[in-house]
Computed example of a mutant assay.
Amino acid sequence: MGNGNGVLSGAVIAVAGAGGPAGRATMRRLAEAGATVVGSDNNPERLAEAVEAARSAGGGAGITGEKVDLLDLASARDWADRIEKDFGRCDGLVHLVGGWRGSKGFAETDPGDWDLLERLLVRTVQHTSLAFFDALRRSDRGRYVLISAAGASRPTAGNAAYGAAKAAAEAWTLAMADAFRKEGGEQGPTSAAAILVVKALVHDAMRAERPNAKFAGFTDVTDLAEAVAGVWDRPAAEVNGNRLWLTEKP
């Protein structure tokens, strides 16, 4: 684990959708590597629990949380501005906001599922990327990290809304990456937008609930956290605009 002397030492990183198991693991890992971490979630109780769990698991006092409405662009911008004002910089935004709706087959798809997933999986990405772009551009190690799913590249019949929303979020993130590329000119980008692709996530509580399940191809949240931290270990030009696969490529 990090000792605070590495590339993340002194970094300030925001984690959106930090209230779930992936948020806990990611906040803890980034803090262990020396970063100051500010998590957000739309559920204050869940966020407080996640921050407390990440702190007591080894992340320490470098982890804080605040309720932010990421469906509101002004709220997202205020959050980004506060972080820069409070800490003097912002070096990353990890986007973990999730959600899923599916159906038995394609014909049974409920268009209402799209309405929900478009807000959760697309709108929040639009708002965090726009809100944090300037701060990340100013950082010497700015990273925007989207957690996506293999279903964006190969959607299944019952996951039309989910796959389409994930694909839209990826396209938006790749446009941000192109902006970083253009800014960098001939020297190449100094900041990056990258996509980590999983099949699905698994954590200890899921395994306890379903002891006989194999969870084949799933990514453990601790491995995801390791991969998130690893995005800062690689040069911006190497990760910018790339899908980094943590599961088998379809």
Rank of each mutant, 00 (worst) to 15 (best):
T26S: 06
M27G: 01
L30S: 02
A31I: 09
A33I: 07
A35D: 09
N42F: 08
A50G: 02
A50M: 05
A54I: 10
G58P: 07
G59S: 08
G60D: 08
A61H: 10
G62Y: 06
G62L: 15
I63R: 09
I63N: 03
T64C: 13
G65N: 01
K67P: 14
V68T: 14
V68I: 14
V68M: 13
L71D: 11
L73W: 04
S75P: 12
A76C: 12
R77M: 09
A80L: 09
A80S: 15
K85Q: 14
D86C: 09
G88M: 03
D91Y: 07
V97Q: 05
V97R: 02
W100K: 06
G102F: 03
G102N: 10
G105Y: 02
G105K: 10
F106V: 13
F106L: 15
G112L: 10
G112F: 07
G112W: 03
D113P: 09
D113T: 06
R119L: 14
L120R: 08
L120H: 08
R123C: 04
T128Q: 10
F133S: 02
A135W: 01
R137W: 03
R137G: 06
R138A: 15
G142V: 00
R143D: 01
Y144M: 06
L146D: 00
L146H: 01
S148R: 00
A149I: 10
